[in-house]
Amino acid sequence: MTVVVEERDRSVLTRVQHLLHAQATIGPAVVLLTSVIVFALLSERFLTPGNISLILQQVAVVGTLAVGQTIVILTAGIDLSCGAIMVLTSIVMAKVASETGLPGLPALLLGFLVGTVCGLLNGMLVTRLKLPPFIVTLGTLNVFFALNLWYSGSATIRGTDMPSLLLFTGQTFTVGGTRITYGSIMLVLLVAAMAFVLKNTAWGRHVYSTGDDLEASRLSGIRTARVLLSVYATAGLIYAVAAWTLIGRIASASPQAGQTDNLDSITAVVIGGTSLFGGRGAVVGSLIGALIVGVFRNGLALAGVDVLWQTMAVGVLIIVAVSLDQWIRKVKA
């Protein structure tokens, strides 16, 4: 039996829809490129090395959180507790090192362990108690934040009291006049590693398929609970890496830092083209999403636009990105 597939005439719009369907990262990449060009025309200071360096530093923390947030959202979950895990972890790293004189490396590893355990707790609640991720992480957000206030005594730990390794992420090297922090390099490496794993390993595929259709994945023999558990734990570990970047960025560990970073990371993921319904998206998109937000805020500020309009611009971007995702999902053969 042979069926001749008829070549239908496709409108330009349909072609765009198909292209975006196949490559979800194209949209955000175009937006980023366009906004860079526009802001460069609006202000000559925009493309100066100093300003680019500033944007990269501002993006590093939220961008790192967004890597963990991406894999959670790919499983059709959401993680509201990421910022709280990051802050708790940064306090643990800094306080243990400054009070007990623990060297930098073990303090850092202890922080990574705390982050992973926090993520694992989220994963256990999602898979064992079968609670919606939104509710689980809304609860643990408060739990982790309270632990953070209790352990820190609501006091900031100064960078000068910490081993230098914890501040390493804030140090810079210079390329062509632009000062780049090691924190932003770490972000790029993290994105590259996660993109590789998601694309090239069975685990990566199972993350996508679990978010796409949980029951189908289970019937296909995927241990979906194990996949979810590993995703939340890995995300926790990545938030601990973000904590390291945060300490370097603010040269201290503050229990009040990163209060809105959980929502900012979700913003980056969504603007980056990852679907909140799961199973679709890419971690590179989230990095681009974080950069878009950074570029918008910075560019509008340089153009002398009030902060409130910057916030409104980000809000509009979110709505546009999600509408676009809904439209792309309606793609037909």
Partner: peptide, 17 residues
């Protein structure tokens, strides 16, 4: 319900799991 994952390609679905 077919138990296929719509966003993955045909080869990926054939070898899913």
């Amino acid at each position: 319900s077919l138990a296929v994952s719509p966003s993955l390609d045909i080869a990926a679905n054939l070898f899913l799991g």
